[in-house]
Design a binder for these strands. Structure first.
Length: 204
DNA sequence: GATAAGATCATCT
DNA sequence: GATGATCTTATCA
C-alpha cells in the first residue's frame, strides 16, 4: 500500500519535490470511487523572481496561495477554458509550486469521461490512458476551483501517495512549456518527466 | 507529419 | 482592455 504524502514532503526545495513526485500517485475520490493515477510529468515554479510564475507579479488574491503552506492546492483557470493543478512547495512565505502536467491511468474502465460536457466515451479497458497536459488532466479528474486552496495533506477528495523510487536515469528534464514570455526564466530546466520506453503502438 | 486558428474568462493593468 | 503554466479542430503537405 502507498502512503499519503505529508507536509514534510512538500516543505522542501521545489526541484526536489517536482522530481520526487514523478512515479508517485495522484488519488481522486468522486462519490465512492477512488481513482489512482501515476504522475509522469511536472514543472516547478520557484520563487518571487521567476517570471514564468504567477507569483513574480507579487502577492495578489490569486497568488497568495503560493505564498502559503506547502501541500496546498493552487488551481487556476487558464485561457478561459482549462484548469491547472499545482501543489504549493517550500516553506510558508516563499512562493513556489509544482504543476502536475501529465499522468497515466491504468484500467480506467470508463470511470471518467474524456469531456465532462459530453457523453461517456465508454470503456477504456486495460489500455493505459495518458493525459498529456495539465488542462486535460483536470478535465478527466473533475478538478476545478472548488479544490483551490485545499490542503492535499488532509483532503478526502484529492491527495498524493508515494510510489516506487525511480532510477535517476529515467528522470528527464527540460524547459518549461508555454512560458516564452518569461525572459531568461523560460530556459530554466524545471520541467521533469519520466523517460518512456518506446512502445510501438502505431496503428498501422 | 506540421502549423494555425479559435474557444473563452479570471485576473491584473 | 490585454493576456495566458491549454487543447481541439481544421487545413496543408
Amino acid at each position: 500500500m502507498s502512503r499519503k504524502l505529508g507536509r514534510r514532503f512538500f516543505n522542501r526545495p521545489t526541484i526536489k519535490v517536482a522530481r520526487d513526485l514523478l512515479g508517485c500517485y495522484l488519488v481522486r475520490k468522486i462519490g465512492n470511487k477512488v481513482i489512482r493515477v501515476r504522475i509522469t510529468e511536472t514543472e516547478g515554479y520557484i520563487g518571487p523572481n521567476d517570471r514564468a510564475s504567477h507569483a513574480s507579479r507579487g502577492r495578489t488574491p490569486r497568488t497568495k496561495i503560493m505564498f502559503g503552506n506547502p501541500g496546498y492546492f493552487y488551481i487556476y483557470l487558464i485561457y478561459g477554458m482549462y484548469y491547472c493543478l499545482n501543489v504549493v512547495t517550500e516553506k510558508r512565505g516563499f512562493p513556489a509550486a509544482v504543476l502536475i502536467r501529465a499522468v497515466t491511468l491504468k484500467n480506467n474502465n470508463g470511470a471518467f469521461c474524456p469531456r465532462w460536457d459530453k457523453k461517456p466515451a465508454g470503456d477504456f479497458g486495460a489500455k493505459i490512458t495518458k493525459t498529456d497536459g495539465p488542462g486535460k488532466l483536470c478535465r478527466y479528474f473533475k478538478v476545478d476551483k472548488s479544490l483551490n486552496n485545499k490542503d492535499s495533506v488532509t483532503s478526502q477528495q484529492l491527495w498524493f501517495e508515494g510510489g516506487k523510487l525511480l532510477r535517476t536515469e529515467r528522470i528527464m528534464s527540460g524547459k518549461r512549456i508555454g512560458v516564452s514570455y518569461a525572459g531568461v526564466w523560460q530556459h530554466k530546466p524545471w520541467r521533469f518527466y519520466i523517460k518512456i520506453r518506446l512502445s510501438k503502438r502505431r496503428a498501422h
